[in-house]
Amino acid sequence: MTERILKPGSTLGVLGGGQLGMMFTEAARRMGYGVAVWDPDADAPAHRIATHSFIAPFSDVNVRDRFARIADAVTLEWENVPAELCEWLERGCPMRPSGAVLRVIQDRIEQKQFLSSRHLSVPAFSIVESALQLRSAVDRLGLPAVCKTARSGYDGKGQWVLRDASDVKQVEHILRTANAGRRWILEQFVEYVRELSVLVVRGGNGAQCVYPVVENRHERGILRETLVPASIPLDVAETATEISKQVVTALQGVGVFCVELFQTTNGSLLINEIAPRPHNSGHYTLNVCTVSQFEQQVRATCGLPLGETRLLSPAVMVNLIGEEVQAVTSGEGLYALHATAGAVLHLYGKRIMRPGRKMGHVTFTASQVETATETARQFIARIRRSS
């Protein structure tokens, strides 16, 4: 059956108005669509370019009703919006992805159990519902291990690496003082060669397209840089792509998904996490792909054919974190960046700067990935000296 297509002039709703919501809004407006942004934060950058702006908690029923009357289809920029809100909205219009998909992905325990039940490889894990259970989970999995909150948490927040008994004792204390009903997941620490991710786009008719496999490098739990294409053998890239497609098919997801994987020291691939929306590691698509991840999100939300994912050149994307943004927006740093061949600056327009906050990114393009990598390395060294 042919999916209903939303024509330009329709209004797309997006839950969340941070940088991902902003870049979705930019793509949608360019393609002729209106955008209704709902974000409780009045300073969220997408509000400034939205056709309709809703600044209220996601629990506000009156705003929910007004938002639903305006939106012809709805998507999201963040997986931690209330699943029950998404399920309510999809009674009246397409919700991409669905509330049911969101429920699986929002909870790391549910997500790991879902993947395991489909015979998709994940790190060994154990459910933790109390400080007492943490000790027994450590006994089963051994150390080192990683304890994560089952819900919420991103960019390293809500995660603790346990390497010895003192770490276990410290996290036990955190768990004892947590609110009732909280759950955690303990995962076996994975010795990996590199972290990979794959963007998979799936339409309502089941059609899929996949972007090249990328390599991600983190600092303090926050993505530092993404290299595309990843420096991996063809067979590893093919396996990573196939696993990622299987994940999204199993979810029956519609929209843009990012599947994060570990390439282990023994050569196997393990699924780390899934994001049901455009991803930081996919920002390179804005500059070096024929169709960006954000345009794909518009296409999937509107029932349009998915775009091609052709890579036009190698690239390295570098995040600007906290005060680092000052190194490229004033003085010699501003001049030097714009004098760099192949460098493209993206600023998110966030008015408040704080440690660990993503303020923008720079994509370095070149005919050879080695050239882009070296230029990015020099840039990172420069902003570290300046901040």
Rank of each mutant, 00 (worst) to 15 (best):
S244F: 07
C209F: 00
S231W: 08
Y335D: 11
T2P: 15
T239G: 09
G92Y: 12
S367W: 08
T241R: 12
L347V: 12
L269N: 00
L347G: 11
G18W: 13
Q188A: 14
T226Y: 03
G255F: 14
H173D: 13
A150K: 00
E273V: 06
D167N: 09
E238W: 01
G204K: 02
Y284I: 02
S281H: 03
V247M: 00
V63H: 13
A36P: 10
R48T: 15
I380R: 10
A315G: 07
C93V: 14
I232C: 12
R66M: 01
N319D: 04
P229V: 08
T249W: 06
A36F: 04
Q133K: 09
Q208W: 07
L196D: 00
V201P: 02
R135E: 15
E225N: 13
G16Q: 10
F54E: 01
T177P: 03
P314R: 05
H283E: 09
K112I: 12
L12M: 06
L223C: 10
V298F: 00
T285H: 08
E195R: 00
E295G: 04
A137D: 01
I274K: 08
N179L: 11
C86Q: 00
S166V: 12
A150I: 07
L234F: 06
I271V: 13
T371E: 15
H279I: 10
I70W: 07
Q106F: 01
R217A: 10
T309W: 06
E273S: 05
L304H: 15
E195T: 05
Q111R: 10
A339R: 11
T365G: 04
R310P: 06
K350S: 03
R29W: 07
C302H: 06
V214G: 02
S130R: 06
G360E: 06
G203A: 14
